[in-house]
């Protein structure tokens, strides 16, 4: 499991970006990535502007680039998909390093990689600068249905408990000399997962009953009233999508 303390992606620091309210950050990241996705595939310099804007945001967040790059490996399966594109795409063929590949496929694969990488880095920056609890508050302020946010809250809260449960089962299997090496061992792992489901479900029931007995009526009390946002914070939050929008507009005008 990847999670040790809630989630491993959060990078503790004190910066402008860390202090920004979560709903501003989510909206800003979403707007930015949407504009990146809308950038036409033939363009080159708008992607450079997007990347530069993101690098400035990373710098402002005081999160080391190496920290984010290491975690960008989640993207790897799609690099493979993108690399296959020049070979299966249609259109005129060009020779690259002695291989005949589709020219539009090559251009599209480049755009795919650029957009995917920018998207992953943006999401990583958001996760690195926002505590899970703040993220939930932010989602609620963005009018995500309360019940959905609540379910997500329980997931964030209990993910370590369930992961620890799985680790204990895994230690128990290993101490009985179990070593999963081939599909022959699937039944054992699957049985453990079945038991994990029963335990998770029963834990859910217990938590629910415990909450009811403490006067839970369907919504959790929030501890602190949301802090007021100043114009400086709104400006900081809007900076990333604004730069991306300008790059996009510039590309449309200049070509």
């Amino acid at each position: 499991m990847g999670a040790e303390h809630g989630h491993t992606l959060h990078y503790h620091a004190h910066s402008l970006v860390h202090r920004l309210p979560a709903h501003l950050k989510i909206a800003s990241a979403l707007g930015f990535v949407l504009l990146v996705v809308a950038t036409p595939r033939g363009a080159t310099w708008p992607y450079a502007v997007h990347l530069l804007a993101l690098l400035v945001a990373m710098r402002a967040a005081r999160v080391p680039a190496a920290y984010l790059l290491k975690r960008a490996v989640v993207e790897v399966p799609f690099v493979a998909f993108a690399l296959a594109m020049p070979f299966i795409a249609t259109g005129p063929r060009v020779d690259v390093l002695g291989l005949s590949v589709s020219e539009p496929g090559l251009v599209a694969a480049g755009a795919l990689l650029a957009k995917g990488t920018l998207g992953v880095l943006t999401a990583l920056l958001l996760a690195a600068t926002t505590e899970p609890a703040d993220l939930l508050v932010g989602l609620a302020r963005l009018r995500v249905p309360a019940r959905l946010v609540e379910i997500m809250g329980f997931m964030v809260r209990y993910v370590d408990v369930v992961a620890a449960e799985w680790r204990r089962m895994s230690v128990a299997r290993t101490s009985r000399l179990f070593d999963a090496r081939s599909p022959r061992h699937w039944p054992v792992l699957a049985r453990s997962l079945g038991v994990l489901f029963v335990r998770s479900y029963e834990r859910g029931e217990r938590v629910h009953l415990a909450m009811l007995s403490r006067g839970y009526t369907g919504s959790l009390p929030t501890l602190a009233a949301p802090a007021a946002i100043g114009p400086a914070q709104v400006l900081a939050g809007a900076a990333l999508p604004t730069v991306a929008a300008l790059a996009l507009a510039g590309q449309a005008v200049l070509g």
Partner: peptide, 27 residues
């Protein structure tokens, strides 16, 4: 689920999340 049993749905979601993390060796 019973009305308002968000904890249950949350724990089931956590289970699905954990189940997706378990690696099954192929070859």
């Amino acid at each position: 689920l019973d009305d308002r049993s968000a904890p249950l749905a949350g724990l089931v979601a956590t289970f699905i999340f954990a189940a997706q993390m378990v690696n099954f060796p192929v070859a």
